[in-house]
Amino acid sequence: MRWGRPGAGAAGTAPPLPRTDVELREVTHAYGDRTVLTGVSLTLTESRIGVIGANGSGKSTFARLLNGLVVPTAGTVLVDGLDTRTQAREVRRRVGFVFQDPDAQIVHPTVAEDVAFGLTNQGVPAGEIARRVDEVLVAYGLDGHRDHPAHLLSGGQKQLLAIAGVLVMAPQRVVFDEPTTLLDLRNTRRVARVVDGLEQDVVVVTHHLELLAGFDRVLVFEDGRVAADGTPAETVPWYVARCG
């Protein structure tokens, strides 16, 4: 079953989510005197996009640009024509973001409260919040932990909670920044199955290359630029050879 928008019902019965179109135009980004991305121009329309590269290559900054967590020092990022610099709130309704470390994303004491946080901020009615929270907790196997202290969950459960907190907001695209780096093999596989089953478009930054099998497109970052761009069969072997 693919799990997408709350209330969408079983796979095949709900209308598909609209596709997101993300465009980067000559994007450069620097932290002080350190430039981490230079002249990146891309259009992202595919359903499954992977992002790989060495540590410090710029891939995490690239990921944060996609929903306005970071705005470019120069150039423009557009999501369905919305500028992340001036329309960040609307952009974040369309593009969700899951951090590498779920503790950076968990802000409320209990599991159910944490999932409800974003909906409450949006002013969603209480009854609708309760329904959507219940639905997403069941979808990710967290319904038995709804009143459990969020920070006492296992590492795998915390990552599922972080994902649930994003998915309950019903974005059209979800960006994952190294979602399995802190997980053991069992939970890595569990998160991979979750990502594979999403109705939403996804962008996954990862060092676990096997997660990208079946993806539509993989970008390889090197020294702040896109060094390769193609299918996994084209770019992953290129990257592996480059690392060797």
Rank of each mutant, 00 (worst) to 15 (best):
I106T: 02
A164T: 10
L24F: 00
G58N: 03
T188M: 14
G244P: 04
P179M: 03
L153K: 14
G58F: 07
G75H: 05
P16L: 01
T86N: 04
T20C: 15
V36W: 03
E46N: 01
R173G: 08
A88Y: 01
V195N: 00
E178V: 09
E222W: 05
G50D: 09
D33F: 02
V79N: 07
Q200Y: 05
Q105H: 10
G32C: 06
P16T: 08
E113L: 08
P179H: 00
V202C: 08
E222G: 04
A14L: 09
V195S: 05
A14I: 13
I49H: 01
V218S: 08
V91Y: 03
G58M: 09
L66N: 07
F117A: 01
L211W: 02
L69M: 13
E46V: 11
G165W: 04
Y239N: 10
A170K: 04
G141L: 10
H208K: 14
L152C: 06
F97K: 13
N121E: 10
A170S: 15
A112T: 03
Q87Y: 04
A112F: 01
T84Q: 09
R5S: 12
M1K: 08
L219N: 04
L69H: 02
R217M: 12
R131S: 15
G56L: 14
T38K: 12
T180F: 03
V203A: 07
A112G: 03
Y140N: 10
F62W: 12
K59E: 12
V27Y: 06
V218R: 03
V194P: 00
D147M: 02
L209T: 04
R89W: 09
